[in-house]
Amino acid sequence: MSMMFARVLRPITSNKEAASTLGTRGFAAGASKAKKGKKGGAGADAPKASTLTKEVKSTTVVGANILKDGSDPKVFPDSEYPDWLWHLIDKRLPLSELRRKDIETLPYEELKRFVKLDNRSRIKENNMLKAKN
C-alpha cells in the first residue's frame, strides 16, 4: 500500500497539488477481476429457473410475504374480495376533460376530484408566478 502512495506522490511539484492528490481515493488494480472469478463470474447473473409448481403459482401470491416468519398469502375467488377493489384500476378523466364538462352534471365523487385537482393546479400556478427566477 505504501508503494502505491509513493507512485502517486512522485510527480507532485507544489503543495497545492499535494493537497488535492492526498484528498482523492484510488482503487487497487485488479480488485474487480478477482471478485468475478470467485463466485461463478458472469454465470451468477443469469436468471434462475423457477422451482415452484404451477399449482402453487396459481393459488398463492408468490413474493408478497413481508413478515419474517410468515407465508405468502393465498389467492381467493373474485367473489371473496370487496366490490370497490375492482374499480381501482378504472380510468378517470384528467382535469382538462373535467373542466370541459358541466359541473352540475358531474357525480359527487368526480366533482370532489375536480375541486381537488383544480385547487392543486391553481396552487402550482401561483407558486410558479411567485418563484424567484
Score class of each variant (00 low, 15 high):
residue 109 E to Y: 05
residue 23 G to Q: 12
residue 71 S to F: 04
residue 47 P to H: 03
residue 15 N to H: 12
residue 116 K to Y: 12
residue 31 A to C: 07
residue 53 T to S: 07
residue 48 K to S: 05
residue 115 V to Q: 03
residue 36 K to M: 10
residue 60 T to E: 10
residue 133 N to F: 09
residue 7 R to W: 04
residue 100 R to E: 10
residue 111 L to C: 03
residue 70 G to Q: 10
residue 52 L to V: 01
residue 65 N to T: 02
residue 5 F to K: 14
residue 86 W to S: 03
residue 21 T to H: 01
residue 9 L to C: 04
residue 115 V to E: 05
residue 102 D to M: 01
residue 27 F to A: 05
residue 65 N to A: 06
residue 104 E to S: 07
residue 130 K to N: 12
residue 15 N to M: 14
residue 75 V to P: 00
residue 59 T to H: 06
residue 131 A to G: 08
residue 101 K to W: 01
residue 128 M to Q: 13
residue 25 R to P: 00
residue 126 N to V: 15
residue 63 G to T: 12
residue 106 L to P: 02
residue 12 I to G: 04
residue 91 K to E: 11
residue 43 G to D: 11
residue 38 K to M: 08
residue 65 N to H: 02
residue 97 E to V: 06
residue 28 A to N: 02
residue 121 S to W: 15
residue 126 N to E: 13
residue 125 E to R: 09
residue 116 K to I: 06
residue 28 A to Y: 11
residue 3 M to T: 14
residue 107 P to Q: 12
residue 14 S to P: 00
residue 78 D to A: 15
residue 77 P to K: 15
residue 74 K to F: 11
residue 105 T to Y: 02
residue 15 N to T: 11
residue 108 Y to S: 10
residue 77 P to T: 11
residue 80 E to Y: 15
residue 100 R to I: 08
residue 50 S to Y: 00
residue 59 T to W: 02
